[in-house]
């Protein structure tokens, strides 16, 4: 029974692509991609991003996602761009080409204005939804102006 459950879990988790952050958050700003987990595996993704900050994300499903299409429900809050990440990833070449590789499939999300929206990732291998929260930048403390 446990073995069956594990197989079902593995199959369920493998139905959709996985996403990975590929860039750092700048100092004092948010750029964090997390999974939303359920009993069956990854249910979705959550992205916290500061206004004015960008994050690069790759999509894979046993290899780089094929025919990646990414859209934002509200581009005024979170903008998405296709990205060109010049690296090779092991690809699902099957039993005839186990060593095949393909260029990574990537996109960039940009925080435009504070608020929440969804970014939808669609591929030939299924899709994912990212719940995006754009947070305002921290307020800058006033500082003394010194003139000579």
């Amino acid at each position: 029974m446990i073995r069956v459950a594990l197989i079902v879990l593995a199959l369920a988790a493998g139905c959709n692509p996985t996403l990975s952050a590929q860039s750092l958050a700048p100092p004092g700003r948010a750029a964090r991609l997390d999974t939303i987990d359920s009993f069956w595996g990854i249910k979705g993704y959550r992205l916290a991003l500061s206004k004015g900050v960008a994050i690069a994300v790759t999509c894979s499903h046993g290899g780089p996602c094929a025919k990646l299409r990414v859209t934002s429900d509200d581009p005024a809050i979170a903008e998405v761009h296709d990205a060109s990440l010049g690296v090779l990833q092991p690809s699902h070449g099957g039993v005839y080409a186990p060593d095949n590789q393909a260029t990574a499939a990537a996109f960039v999300v940009v925080g435009k204005a504070p608020g929440t929206t969804k970014v939808r990732v669609r591929t030939d291998d299924g899709g994912r939804t990212i719940d995006v929260t754009i947070v305002p930048p921290p307020e800058v403390a006033p500082q003394a102006v010194v003139a000579r």
């Binding site: 860039s23 900050v53 960008a54 690069a56 761009h81 990205a83 060109s84």
Partner: peptide, 8 residues
């Protein structure tokens, strides 16, 4: 429109 890189 393909983003090659970005810098904060």
């Amino acid at each position: 429109g393909a983003v090659v890189d970005f810098q904060h």
